[in-house]
Design a protein around this nucleic acid. Structure first.
Lengths: 252, 252
DNA sequence: GTAAATAATTAGGGAAGGCTAAATAAATTG
DNA sequence: CAATTTATTTAGCCTTCCCTAATTATTTAC
C-alpha cells in the first residue's frame, strides 16, 4: 500500500548507493551498502525490501542485488541531480570539490526538476557566454576569498571584447576548428557542430540532448575507443564508436 | 532527550510559519499555523510542544504563542535561507516568482551554511559586475525560453564596455551620485558608500554586513520614515531613522 | 567434512511526524 | 444565561527509518 513509485529521500540514498556500487564492482551485497551509507545491516534489509516492493530492484535474500529497468532510471535521475548540483557549485560558485559534493548530497533530494534544468542551462551559459567563462568565475572566486576585485573592470571587460573578436574572426573565415568527438580527451568540453547519420541510429543521441549547439563533456574513452562516455545536459551517455564517428565538435 | 538545539525540517517549517504569522498579525494561534501549513490541529499541538521543549517558543495551552530569543534567531535563519534561495532563483536563474518560492520552500532545509553565503555573494556579484547585470540575465532567460541568442555576442559585449566607461567616467570626475539611504525607494538596490556615526551606534549595522561596498536593498520605509527595513547579505535589518541618517549610498 | 568466521536475516524497539476521533475550553448568540 | 458553535487539546494509531540483539545461512579453514 506504500505509494508504488514515490521514493523517500532515504530510499533515494540507497538506490544511489546501489547504482554506484554496481558501477564500481558489478555486484552489490547488503554489506557494501551498509558500509557506504554508514547504517546497520538490518536497516539495509528493510530498505531493500521497500525498494523491491516498489519494483526498483531485483531482490532475493542471499542473492545478488540488481536494478530493474525502473530502478536504473530512478537511480540515474538521483545521480543526475547530484551531479548537476555539484557541477554548479564547483563550476559557478567556485566551491571546493569536497564541499560541493557534501552539499549536493544534502540537497539532491529536494531540488525540483525545473530548477535542475535551469542549473544545467546556467552552467552551460556561463561556460559559453563571452561575458562569463572561466576568467569571470575566477574573478568571483577571488572576490569571495579576498573581499576585493582582482583586476579593474576595464581590463576585465577588455578581455571579453578580445574573446569575442577571436571567435568572430574564426567564424567569419569559416575557420572554426572542427574535431571528431572521438578525438577529444577526457575532461575536455566541446560544442556539437553536426550529427551525421540516419535518423534511427542517432535518435537516442538526439533525444538525450546531443543536438548541434549543445555542450558536451567527454568523460572516458574505453581502451579501444568503444564505448565513449559523455555528459550532456547533466545526463551521462555511453556512445558506441560508430555513433561517435559522425559527431563533429568544436572546442570551447 | 531529543537533541536540544537541532530542528528537524518539519519543525523549521513550523517556526518559519510562526515567524511570518507574527509579522502579519502580531499574534499566533494554533489555528493559523494549521491553516498555513495545511496540517491538522493535532499535529500543530505536537509541534508546539516540541518547539517549546527546545526553548524556541513560549507555549502555554490556550495562550498566545510567542518566539523566544533563541526561537527568533532560528526562525530568522530559516527565513534567510529561504529568501536567499528564492533570490538566486529569481535574480539569476530567471525563474518565475511563484516557482522560485516553491523551490526555496523545498530546499531551504538542506542547504549548508557555506553554500548560502556563496549564493549571496554570487547574486551580488552578478548584479554588480559589468559583465553580469540585468541585461545579461535577460539574455540567459531568453536563451532558456527560445533556445537561441537574443542578440549577437558583439553587440552584447559592446554594452558591457559602454557600462564600464560610464562608471569610470563618473568615478574619475568624483561624480558618483551619492544619496542618503532614507531617500531611496522600496525595491531599489544601492551600494553603501559611507557609514557615518560613532562606533557604538552602528556596531550592529556593521556587524550585519552593512559595510561600504556592500549592496543593500530597501524593503520598506514606515510612514514617518522610521523604521527603515533593508536587506543586506540576505539578512533583514530594521534601521532607526537616525541610524539611517548617516548612511550614504549610490544607485546601481 | 565439520568447526569457526563472516554475512544476512528476523525480532523487537524507539523517535519523528503525520492522522482521526473524542473531550474540553472559549466565544457567540438567541 | 444556557445552548450552540468554534477553537484547542488529548488520546490513540500509523508509517518511516533508524537502532541492537539474537538467529540462521553461507564461506572458509583446517
Amino acid at each position: 500500500m506504500t505509494s508504488a513509485d514515490t521514493l523517500t529521500a532515504s530510499l533515494e540514498d540507497y538506490l544511489e548507493a546501489i547504482f554506484h556500487i554496481i558501477a564500481e564492482k558489478h555486484a552489490v551485497k547488503p554489506r557494501d551498502i551498509a558500509k557506504r551509507l554508514k547504517v546497520s545491516y538490518a536497516s539495509v534489509t528493510g530498505a531493500l525490501r521497500a525498494l523491491a516492493e516498489k519494483r526498483m530492484i531485483h531482490y532475493t535474500p542471499y542473492d545478488l542485488i540488481t536494478l530493474t529497468e525502473t530502478g536504473e532510471t530512478a537511480a540515474k535521475d538521483v545521480v543526475r541531480r547530484h551531479e548537476v548540483l555539484k557541477d554548479f557549485f564547483v563550476e559557478v560558485l567556485a566551491v571546493p570539490d569536497a564541499d560541493a559534493d557534501t552539499a549536493a548530497c544534502l540537497m539532491e533530494h529536494s531540488i525540483p526538476k525545473a530548477i535542475v534544468e535551469r542549473f544545467i542551462e546556467f552552467v552551460e551559459f556561463v561556460e559559453t557566454c563571452p561575458r562569463g567563462g572561466d576568467k569571470w568565475i575566477k574573478g568571483f572566486s577571488y572576490q569571495c576569498d579576498h573581499g576585493g576585485k582582482q583586476e579593474s573592470c576595464e581590463t576585465c571587460v577588455a578581455s571579453c571584447v578580445a574573446e569575442v573578436r577571436k571567435r568572430t574572426k574564426k567564424g567569419d573565415e569559416k575557420a572554426v576548428v572542427s574535431y571528431k568527438l572521438k578525438n577529444m580527451k577526457p575532461g575536455q568540453k566541446c560544442r556539437i557542430l553536426k550529427v551525421r547519420g540516419r535518423g534511427e541510429t542517432n535518435k537516442r543521441i538526439l533525444e538525450m540532448g546531443m543536438t548541434p549547439g549543445s555542450v558536451v563533456e567527454l568523460e572516458r574513452i574505453a581502451p579501444l575507443g568503444d564505448p565513449i562516455d559523455v555528459k550532456v545536459k547533466g545526463y551521462h551517455l555511453s556512445l558506441r564508436k560508430d555513433e561517435a564517428e559522425g559527431i563533429d565538435v568544436e572546442l570551447i
